[in-house]
Amino acid sequence: MSETKELTSKFRRVRMVLAREKGFPAGDPNEGYDLLLPLDETGRLDPAEWRNHKLLCRVRRFRPNREDLHGLLRRKPGGQWYIEYRDGDADDEFAFRWSGEHFIWGEYISIRSKETMHTYRITLVEKP
């Protein structure tokens, strides 16, 4: 994802996999996200660190039988976090209340893709 020498000590690799939902009673470990983001000491997103290192806050979306999507973590002026894959907002995915979420193992995080909300379980948090 990024050269680790460029990252500060606050950066973590986070993996989230699809949690159980209709059609996937056991979830799906083959669908999810790999994130590279700055977290504070409690595991929350660190907006100040993000602001100083925006281009290092990368996202990879993986799904079975589809090409991976690569994007950046972004933040709207009102504080809404989202994932931007290409310029424009047609393919943006919106993070549900990420400002208050703890990115720690076992927690559940939601993302709205198009008009559908999906929940993901964090299965990995580690230093890059």
Rank of each mutant, 00 (worst) to 15 (best):
M1H: 12
K5E: 15
F11L: 08
R12Y: 10
R12E: 08
R13Q: 09
V14N: 01
R15A: 05
R15K: 15
M16L: 15
V17C: 10
A19R: 12
A19F: 09
R20N: 05
R20V: 03
E21T: 13
E21R: 10
K22D: 11
K22P: 03
G23M: 09
G23D: 02
F24Q: 13
P25A: 12
G27N: 06
N30P: 06
N30K: 13
E31V: 03
E31L: 05
E31I: 07
D34S: 02
L35D: 00
L35E: 01
L37F: 02
L37Y: 01
P38N: 00
L39M: 04
E41W: 02
E41Q: 08
T42W: 10
R44S: 11
L45G: 01
L45Q: 01
P47V: 06
P47T: 03
P47N: 09
E49M: 10
W50Q: 06
R51G: 11
R51F: 09
R51H: 10
H53N: 15
H53M: 09
L55K: 15
C57H: 03
C57V: 03
R58E: 03
R60T: 04
R61W: 07
F62L: 01
R63V: 05
P64S: 12
E67N: 13
E67F: 12
D68Y: 10
D68R: 03
G71N: 03
G71V: 02
L72R: 10
R74P: 00
R75A: 05
P77T: 04
G78V: 12
G78K: 13
G79D: 00
G79W: 07
Q80H: 04
Y85P: 05
Y85G: 05
R86M: 07
D89Y: 07
A90Q: 05
A90R: 11
D91M: 07
D91N: 12
A95N: 03
F96E: 12
R97E: 14
W98N: 00
W98C: 01
S99F: 04
G100Y: 05
E101Q: 14
H102D: 08
H102L: 14
H102R: 15
I104W: 04
I104L: 14
W105G: 13
Y108H: 14
I111Q: 06
R112W: 04
T116D: 12
T116Y: 11
H118Q: 09
H118V: 02
T119A: 10
T119I: 07
Y120G: 02
R121I: 11
T123H: 06
L124M: 07
L124K: 04
P128V: 01
P128L: 08
